[in-house]
Design a protein around this nucleic acid. Structure first.
Lengths: 334, 334
DNA sequence: GTCGAATGTGGTACCGGTTACACATAAAAT
DNA sequence: ATTTTATGTGTAACCGGTACCACATTCGAC
């Protein structure tokens, strides 16, 4: 591999000039420019990013820390992040935290040493202390879904509470008269917000009882268990709003096993809008988050921060959309 | 951030000694060791990976280039790759190639400049020339599924042809007497091999006709279209072997729309073993590849190569497993 | 005719590590 | 007692860029 000094020698100029030429910083005569261009070509010279990183403290690399890439919500997000990152010339390192604070912190250490330019956290265990520490160590971060409290970093999320209300209203409009909710892990803000939205919508209705809310783990099996439990204690429910699509899929499975017809006997609505929701039988109604857009936004935001075009911490709340499908279809009779 | 020279000063020794201590290369007196340890702690010193990279040409970073992380096959693979990479102290950069050679080559350029230690290609457009070039430029690469011809790099794949035979035999055993095949893009080795496996198993059977093989795009919609076409030309087929799970899911959808019962009228079998196959209705029989294991293997292999414990290029063919589910259940009558 | 700005280029310290080499001393071998 | 050998440490060049500063030259302005 040729170095900048090789190029300088061949072109008959100094390394400083080459550097200026490469970075378009400072003057370079047109003739010189041509000579340099030719030298670079004949040597097949490619400037070393590592050397640049060392000298300039910018690596054109960002990191994406998420709980688990194999959770169906994240691939699309990751795709969006990578798409915009690469558009702006950034590479992305990814890591799975399994929502464990330790792993997150280990990553942060690692990434600092690598002079990473910024970090996107799609993870929920990052706490305020960490965020503050990051801030003062000068590494821009942006969070997804959860802000480590108000203003220690920018946050991109969607309107979870509103979305949950939407879901319940949709179920009501579809004819449901007793709607249960399967909520996710309470340490996740998203799960909390969705539960609040559910409560907003049902608390004043005559049939409401807190025992209509059962916990799940945001996974398929959690949705199944919760559904079984639910139909055991409340055999008369006719609607289930699950805190995310995976649990809704679980609910569908459980109901199918119990030979309860969807949507005839029980209607089911999920939240997230993952691809999987389109292939269940019946297809799953869901409150779709703009997953790709969220990823793109968070990525763009981080890059803005990195390049110094943004120094305030803001919260972006993206709109959700209810996608009605067969699982909540009205007026389908037995 | 403290540098190695700060530590040296504080500990009262030279930078060389610090370096030796850090890398456990060469002798360091125990007393000195303690002094260094203390100095490092008080300064909260963390060696810069970038500087190390420049000096030592090793960045402890690998890249994973795949067609599209949002294709359900890849997240689990990515997870595996990252898991073992991080175990060995490596970070992973990921990129989406969309199976476009241009994008791949762009990545390669980028990664070279970053002194990446090695690359995993899960992509199929890498050709022999590229691989050879990589080899001589000293960057170890390992491929998934597709080797750019025999021995220019190591390859990890699963027994596609054998798996396809398995699928057809299973369908036959389940009572099918006319089995169609939806094959994937012919520029993908995997698709070719699976088709060959199908042919192996059916070519000598009386009912076989080449028109029973139709093409799909490895996506859900391709599976749907192919199925519609198939049932139009051959209304009497009673088994479909799809080249991958996504297309099988599409087949399921299409059959459902045509009101054809699965498995009563037509049985369907997929290939891959993605999570989605478990949540269809009926659940999808599939030839499961050991996805996680493939990722882990390819990752381990690459690291071995990087660390110089492997200089031959080998092919690892992992076993597939047929997972029988409802979509091919025998003896379910109308 | 002089001056200041614009244009163009080179020298070199610096980023923060690694490592070859030189040198010193203590322990073991002959 | 002398030569090896093992142990321990420092100096400084090097990895491949960036960027500050110094220095020339040209040119329009006053």
């Amino acid at each position: 591999m040729a170095t900048i000094r090789d190029v300088a020698k061949l072109a008959g100029v100094s390394v400083a000039t080459i550097s200026r030429y490469l970075n378009k910083t400072g003057y370079v005569n047109v003739d010189t420019e041509h000579k340099i261009k030719k030298a670079i070509e004949t040597l097949k010279y490619e400037p070393s990013s590592v050397a640049r990183g060392l000298a300039g403290k910018q690596t054109k690399t960002i990191a994406l820390i998420l709980p688990d890439i194999s959770n169906p919500f994240f691939p699309e997000l990751a795709r969006a992040v990578e798409d915009v990152a690469s558009t702006y010339g950034y590479t992305v390192i990814f890591g799975n935290s399994d929502d464990q604070g330790v792993k997150e912190r280990t990553y942060i250490e690692l990434l600092k040493k690598k002079y990473i330019d910024g970090i996107i956290f799609a993870s929920n265990t990052l706490n305020r202390d960490d965020a503050v520490q990051m801030n003062q160590s000068g590494i821009p971060i942006v969070c997804l879904d959860r802000g480590p409290d108000n203003h220690s970093c920018s946050v991109v999320r969607s309107k979870n509470r509103e979305g949950a209300q939407l879901a319940v209203q949709h179920l009501l409009a579809a004819g449901c008269r007793k709607i249960a909710h399967i909520y996710g892990p309470m340490d996740l803000i998203t799960a909390q917000e969705r539960m609040k939205g559910y409560e907003d919508a049902v608390k004043s209705l005559p049939w409401f009882s807190p025992s209509l809310m059962v916990s799940g783990n945001f996974q398929i099996n959690g949705g199944m268990k919760a559904t079984e439990q639910l139909l055991h204690t409340h055999p008369d429910i006719d609607g289930i709003f699950a805190g995310n699509d995976l649990m809704a899929v679980g609910a569908l499975k459980a109901l199918h096993r119990m030979q309860i017809l969807v949507p005839q006997q029980v209607k089911v609505c999920g939240f997230d809008g993952i691809q999987m929701a389109e292939i269940t039988e019946p297809e799953l109604t869901t409150v779709a988050q703009p997953i790709y857009e969220m990823g793109a936004t968070v990525s763009r935001l981080l890059i803005k921060k990195i390049e110094g075009n943004l120094d305030t911490n803001e919260i972006y709340e993206l709109d959700v959309t209810l996608i009605p499908r067969r699982s909540t279809q009205k007026g389908v009779h037995l």
